[in-house]
Amino acid sequence: MNDVVRLDAVSKVYGRGPNTVFALREVSVGIPHGSFTAVMGPSGSGKSTFLHCAAGLDQPSSGSVRLGGTELAGMNETELTELRRKRIGFVFQAFNLVSSLTVTENITLPLRLAGVRVDRAWLEEIVDRVGLAGRTGHRPGELSGGQQQRVAIARALVTRPEVVFGDEPTGALDTMTARDVLTLLREVVTTMRQTVVMVTHDPVAASYADTVLFLADGNVVDAMAAPSAEKVADRMTRLGAWV
Rank of each mutant, 00 (worst) to 15 (best):
A225T: 14
A23V: 04
R235T: 14
P203T: 00
V103A: 11
L7Q: 06
P60M: 12
S64I: 06
G166P: 02
T108A: 11
L157D: 14
L185C: 03
S11M: 04
E77P: 05
T37F: 13
G63S: 14
N96Q: 08
T175P: 01
V4K: 06
A216E: 14
K47T: 01
T102P: 01
G63I: 13
V5R: 05
P32H: 15
L101M: 12
G34K: 03
T177W: 00
V164N: 11
M192D: 09
F165K: 04
A216Q: 15
M75H: 01
S35G: 06
E77I: 00
G131K: 01
N219F: 07
N2V: 14
M1E: 06
D174C: 04
M236D: 08
H33W: 14
V98G: 11
T170G: 00
T70G: 03
R150C: 06
R85I: 10
G137L: 10
L80V: 11
T81K: 12
S11W: 05
T37I: 15
D202T: 09
I31Q: 02
R235Y: 08
L97G: 07
A152Y: 03
L80S: 05
E82D: 14
A205I: 02
S64V: 07
R120N: 10
V189N: 08
K12A: 06
G44L: 09
E79M: 06
R160E: 11
A229R: 11
E168R: 05
S207C: 09
G134D: 09
E79H: 03
V118H: 09
T104Q: 08
V196M: 05
V188F: 05
G166Q: 03
G141N: 02
A55F: 08
E124W: 01
V98T: 13
R84C: 04
G69H: 07
P42C: 05
R120D: 15
A9K: 14
V65F: 05
V151A: 03
T175R: 04
L215T: 02
E82K: 10
V189P: 04
E105K: 03
M224C: 05
G131Q: 12
E162K: 13
M224N: 14
G15E: 07
T78W: 10
Q147T: 09
Q194V: 02
V10G: 01
S100Y: 12
V116E: 07
M224S: 08
C53H: 06
A55G: 15
P110Y: 15
R193Y: 06
M224L: 15
R66A: 00
V151L: 02
T37M: 12
R85T: 06
T159R: 07
T78R: 14
T200D: 05
D119P: 08
D210R: 07
L80K: 04
T170Q: 01
N2Y: 11
G166W: 04
R112F: 03
T200P: 00
S35A: 12
P161L: 02
R193L: 10
G74A: 04
V212T: 06
N219A: 15
W122C: 00
A54W: 00
N2C: 06
T195A: 00
M198P: 02
V196W: 03
T175L: 00
T20A: 04
T190A: 12
L72V: 06
S11T: 02
V164E: 11
N96Y: 11
R120T: 12
L57A: 08
N106T: 12
T195G: 09
